[in-house]
Simulated assay, not measured.
Amino acid sequence: MHLKRFTDFALRVLIYLALHPQRIISINEIARAFDMSRNHLLKVVNELVASKLVTTYRGKSGGLQLSKLPADINVGHLTRKLEGESPLINCTKPLCPILPACTLNQALDEAQQAFFDQLDRYTLADLIGNQQDRLVNLLAQTGSEANYE
């Protein structure tokens, strides 16, 4: 299974915000930290705001903060929401001639469910774990911590 770039960016945004719980973070800072397109990042942030995971603040010192504690953000739930749970393959368009006897679709459905079940075991806090200082230092090396807007 391959995650959409949108989901990848959403998870990175949440990790970044969780690493800086005492600050309001600008979109530009996150874009620089991960070398992301600011325009694409705006779409991701809008979805996170609509999902009530991120709060935005307007104005010169505005930006973003998590709306929930990292321990309350489930990675599996978020991934399902952003990815959707559509089947990995569509055996009806075009109609596969072996569909009545094939179990490939069932096997892939079970694999997809196992994937989401595994992600359900993790929260945003788990993704950071005891690596908070190391993650912050790695991001600081990208120059994202200095001269942010």
Rank of each mutant, 00 (worst) to 15 (best):
Y148M: 08
A107W: 00
K68L: 15
A10F: 02
D133F: 03
L53I: 10
L119K: 10
I24M: 02
R23T: 14
K52A: 12
A107I: 13
I25P: 03
H2R: 13
T7G: 05
R23S: 12
D109P: 02
L64N: 01
T123M: 00
L119T: 11
P21W: 01
N137H: 10
M36Y: 06
Y57V: 01
Q65E: 07
L11V: 12
C91P: 04
T123F: 06
A31F: 12
P100R: 03
S144C: 11
V45L: 03
S86P: 00
R121W: 04
D35K: 03
L138G: 07
L41I: 07
A50P: 00
I98G: 04
N74P: 15
G59L: 15
T7E: 11
V49N: 01
D117Y: 01
L135M: 13
L64Q: 13
L138I: 09
D126T: 10
D109H: 00
G62S: 09
G59N: 15
A18I: 09
T142S: 07
Y148Q: 14
L108A: 10
S144I: 05
C102A: 08
F6E: 04
P94N: 02
P97F: 03
T79V: 15
Q131W: 12
L42S: 15
L82V: 12
V13Q: 04
V13F: 04
P94Y: 04
L14N: 02
A71P: 01
N39M: 12
H20S: 05
L17E: 02
E145C: 03
S67Q: 15
A101N: 09
S61W: 06
V54R: 05
V136L: 07
L11A: 03
G76K: 06
M36H: 01
L11T: 11
T142I: 02
L19T: 09
F6T: 13
F34E: 01
Y148D: 08
N147G: 09
L48K: 14
L104D: 09
E85V: 03
L139K: 02
L138F: 12
V45W: 11
G76V: 06
Q113V: 03
Q118D: 14
S37C: 12
V45M: 06
G62M: 12
A146H: 14
M36G: 02
S51R: 10
I89E: 00
L66N: 02
L3C: 02
T55L: 09
M36E: 14
L64C: 05
H40R: 09
K43N: 14
L78H: 00
L19P: 00
E110N: 11
C96R: 01
N46C: 03
